[in-house]
């Protein structure tokens, strides 16, 4: 174990008009077997806004993101300490049902991972298992509106029964977003959603994120400074398992308070 002499201090710059807190993390530590990946991360994530996580590879962005919907539970040997609340409710409380949590906190992964089923079934799967649709017509409506929200509908409306895996990478990623939206989550976590996409598809997804912001709380991990600057309202910079600095996006990119943040966003390391 590393011995940290002085407690690490995250530099925080509050918003001019802070949003109500949706997710609150307090001293989150993650240990993979013997390797500590996060050393006490505390952050408040505002409701109905986009928060971007940036930082060099291996700094623990994905790890922290996966704590928020407890996907780390599936990793053998991973241990999570600290506290995360969603609307004031402790998500690591043993009373909380992890299935319900994941229905409320959706996730879009780095690599598009549609089910090897039809486009329709991909989107309909979530509502089906959660019993969100009363009838067939209901279900169809959910699927169509989700695809519309993910701005994919026009491209696939004639081939809803074709396999989702037959779409292009960008379309697949938007299908995954539609799939996440279909269960009406409160929060959507996105782990480098555009890393496999070309600039045009990326632009579409970014546009989409901007639209979704009005209804959903979005947390996005990205390696692209421009993307973080374009889509997010707040940005958090991670380094070596610490949350170094967080604040309003324009502030972080124009006037970072910490040297390491400055170095990273100007491309001096990473």
């Amino acid at each position: 174990m590393s011995s940290s002499p002085a407690p690490f201090q995250t530099i925080r710059t509050p918003d001019a008009s802070p949003r109500p807190t949706k997710i609150h993390a307090d001293g989150v530590k993650v240990i993979y077997g013997t390797k500590q990946a996060l050393h006490g991360v505390s952050i408040d994530i505002g409701e109905k806004s986009v928060t971007a996580f940036i930082g060099p590879s291996g700094c623990g962005k994905s790890t922290f993101l996966r704590c928020i919907n407890r996907m780390n539970d599936t990793i053998v040997g991973a241990r999570v300490e600290g506290k995360i609340t969603l609307d004031g409710e402790d998500i690591y409380n043993t009373d909380l049902d992890v299935v319900e949590l994941r229905a409320r906190v959706g996730m879009v992964f780095q690599k598009p991972n549609p089910f090897p089923k039809s486009i329709f079934d991909n989107v309909a799967y979530g509502p089906r298992i959660h019993g969100l649709a009363k009838s067939k017509a209901d279900l169809e409506e959910i699927v169509v509106t989700s695809l519309q929200k993910a701005s994919l509908y026009n491209e696939v409306k004639d081939r809803l029964q074709e396999p989702g895996t037959g779409l292009s990478g960008g379309q697949q990623q938007r299908l995954c977003i539609a799939r996440a939206i279909a269960v009406s989550p409160e929060v959507i976590l996105m782990d480098e959603p555009c890393s496999a996409l070309d600039p045009i598809a990326t632009a579409k997804v970014e546009e989409l994120i901007d639209e979704l912001r009005t209804n959903y709380t979005i947390v996005i991990v990205t390696h692209s400074m421009q993307q973080a600057a374009r889509v997010s309202q707040r940005t958090a910079f991670f380094h070596l398992g610490h949350l170094v600095e967080e604040g309003p996006t324009d502030h972080i990119f124009t006037n970072p308070l910490e040297q390491r943040t400055q170095d990273y966003i100007t491309g001096r390391f990473g």
Partner: peptide, 22 residues
């Protein structure tokens, strides 16, 4: 591929549903 399991679990399917459906 593990990504299929992630997809199932990520959308709120239980372990059992993920295994049997996907």
């Amino acid at each position: 591929p593990p990504s299929i399991r992630d997809a199932g679990l990520g959308i709120g399917a239980s372990k059992m549903q993920t295994v049997f459906h996907h």
